[in-house]
Structures are given as structure tokens and as C-alpha cells.
């Protein structure tokens, strides 16, 4: 029971991180029906800005804000130069996205080298005992941030003018323009929101696992992307559900089956969903959900 609880908490923690990273895919796909292949690189860069500032002694809050700003700025640039010129085209954005992704990664390598780096963060070595279960204060931070970010996203999407405009653009981009909706700005905002969630996810990742590498933009994305597909690509609530489900499943497979099967299970799940249930767990068609 204690072991089960520990693994459940481990799974939920990584699940929240996956969910944060997955939002950037789901939001963009949900609204523009486009897989945001540059996402991983964008949040990697923002996270590295935060990590390097923390390392150089900058106050934590400032480092986090700087990382978020960097992520947002890069997302704006990527949207402007890689996506907007080819909007509406099915294949071209994939190519341009991978292209800018590689540019971002190489710039990151130039600045921070390819070395894997730690990310100092408060509470990293503290533990809390709840009976026999050992908990990290950072797990509480991750949970609180995860819940707060989910609530924030829910409010933005369902309650604000911007969220309404985002959903309108998703339903019918051309008519949204006819209504005077500044579609270009709404689209940029979608990318920026995705990037901000990604950077938050990246910072939680760096803080909790104390390890960052510039390759996280590519390899670290597998889990986030799998979570997106499990939840139903295009559904931001699905991204959260998929993230938590994947995290817990991985922890349980590791705990009760074998750590050797972990990637097999993850890839298997990804492929199985893509083949047999491309609409994800909820099984609702993309076009009808926020």
C-alpha cells in the first residue's frame, strides 16, 4: 500500500508535467488543426533561460518570469515567421516547424552547450513524511501549480473574450475575420499560451528532476505528445487527463511489471491510440470540444 501510494504520487507528478507540456500541442491543434512541432524547442529554450538565470544567482521569481517571457517571445517569432506564411497549408507548417525547431536547438547549444545541467530549485532535497509515505514538498508545488494552471486555462477558454475568440477561430476562421475578430492576434495568443504552459511544465520538470538538456525539446516531447494523443489531440482537458493517465500508468508499469517495458508501453500506447482511437479517451470528435 505504501509502495502503491509512492508510485501513484510519482506517476501523478510526472503526469502533471506531461499535461503542462501537452497543452501546447492540444491548444494549437484544437484551434488550428496543426501539430505544433516547434513546441518542444520553444519550451526548452524558455526553461533554459530560467535555469541559467537561477544558476547565475538571479532571484527565482525573476528567473521564472524571464523564462516565460523568452518562451512567449520565441513563440511569437515562430508563429510569425514559420507558421503564418504557410497558414492553411497542411504539410508546409510541419517542415517549417521542424526547421525553426532545429535552429532554436542549435542556438541553445551555442549558448548553453550540449551538456546536461542541473537546475537548482528550493525544496529539492527536502522530504515530508506522511506516515510511511515519503513526499517531496516539490510534489506539492507541482500539484498546486498543475491545478492552478488547469483552472486558469479553464477560465481563459470558457470565460474570457479571448477564449471565446479562440473557440470562434477554431469553429470558423474565415467567419471570425468577417466578425472583425483579429484572427492573427488570436492565433499568436494561442501559440503564446501553449508556450507559457510548456515553459511552466519545463520549469517543473527541471525543478523536480533537477536535470535539463537541450535535447528535451525533441526527446522529452515523446511523453507529452503521447499524453496529447491519449487525451484526444485538440482537447486541452484531454491533455490533462492523458498526461495524468500516462504518468500513473508508467509508474505502475515500472513498479509492478518492469522498468524494461516502459518505453514499449509508451510507444505501444501511442501507436494503439493513433491506429484504433485517434480521437483519444474521451472519443469525442475534435471539432466539438474546447
Amino acid at each position: 500500500m505504501q509502495f502503491f501510494t509512492t508510485q501513484l504520487l510519482n506517476g501523478l507528478t510526472s503526469g502533471v508535467v506531461y499535461a503542462m507540456l501537452a497543452v501546447g500541442y492540444s491548444l494549437v491543434y484544437g484551434i488550428l488543426q496543426q501539430i505544433n512541432f516547434a513546441h518542444g524547442y520553444v519550451y526548452m529554450f524558455g526553461t533554459f533561460v530560467t535555469a541559467s538565470l537561477i544558476t547565475s544567482g538571479c532571484p527565482l521569481w525573476l528567473a521564472i518570469i524571464a523564462g516565460l517571457v523568452a518562451g512567449a517571445v520565441i513563440a511569437i517569432a515562430v508563429e510569425r515567421f514559420a507558421y503564418r506564411p504557410v497558414r492553411g497549408n497542411r504539410l508546409a507548417p510541419t517542415v517549417t516547424a521542424v526547421g525553426v525547431g532545429l535552429i532554436i536547438e542549435n542556438v541553445a547549444r551555442l549558448i548553453w552547450t550540449s551538456k546536461i545541467r542541473p537546475m537548482p530549485f528550493p525544496f529539492q532535497t527536502d522530504i515530508i513524511r506522511l506516515g510511511p509515505v515519503v513526499l517531496s514538498p516539490l510534489q506539492i508545488v507541482v500539484a498546486v501549480v498543475g491545478i492552478a494552471m488547469a483552472a486558469l486555462l479553464w477560465i481563459i477558454i470558457t470565460k474570457t473574450d479571448l477564449g471565446r475568440a479562440m473557440r470562434a477561430v477554431k469553429d470558423d476562421l474565415a467567419t471570425a475575420e468577417l466578425m472583425g475578430v483579429p484572427v492573427d492576434r488570436v492565433v499568436v495568443t494561442v501559440y503564446v499560451l501553449g508556450a507559457l504552459f510548456g515553459v511552466v511544465g519545463g520549469i517543473l520538470y527541471g525543478a523536480y528532476y533537477n536535470t535539463l538538456s537541450v535535447t528535451m525539446g525533441f526527446s522529452g516531447t515523446l511523453n507529452a505528445f503521447t499524453a496529447t494523443v491519449i487525451g484526444g489531440i485538440g482537447s486541452v482537458w484531454g491533455a490533462f487527463a492523458g498526461g495524468l493517465l500516462l504518468g500513473v500508468l508508467q509508474a505502475m508499469v515500472t513498479g509492478y511489471v518492469s522498468s524494461a517495458l516502459l518505453n514499449t508501453v509508451t510507444f505501444g500506447l501511442l501507436i494503439a491510440f493513433l491506429l484504433f482511437r485517434p480521437t483519444g479517451i474521451a472519443g469525442v470528435h475534435v471539432a466539438s470540444r474546447p
Binding site: 469553429d171 470558423d172 471570425a176 466539438s288 474546447p290
Partner: peptide
Amino acid sequence: VPEGRRMFSSL
């Protein structure tokens, strides 16, 4: 009032 009404159907 666009041709074909063009609702934002999920709104």
C-alpha cells in the same frame, strides 16, 4: 450576415 449563416457552432 454571411451567406449560409456561418454559426460558430460550438459557441
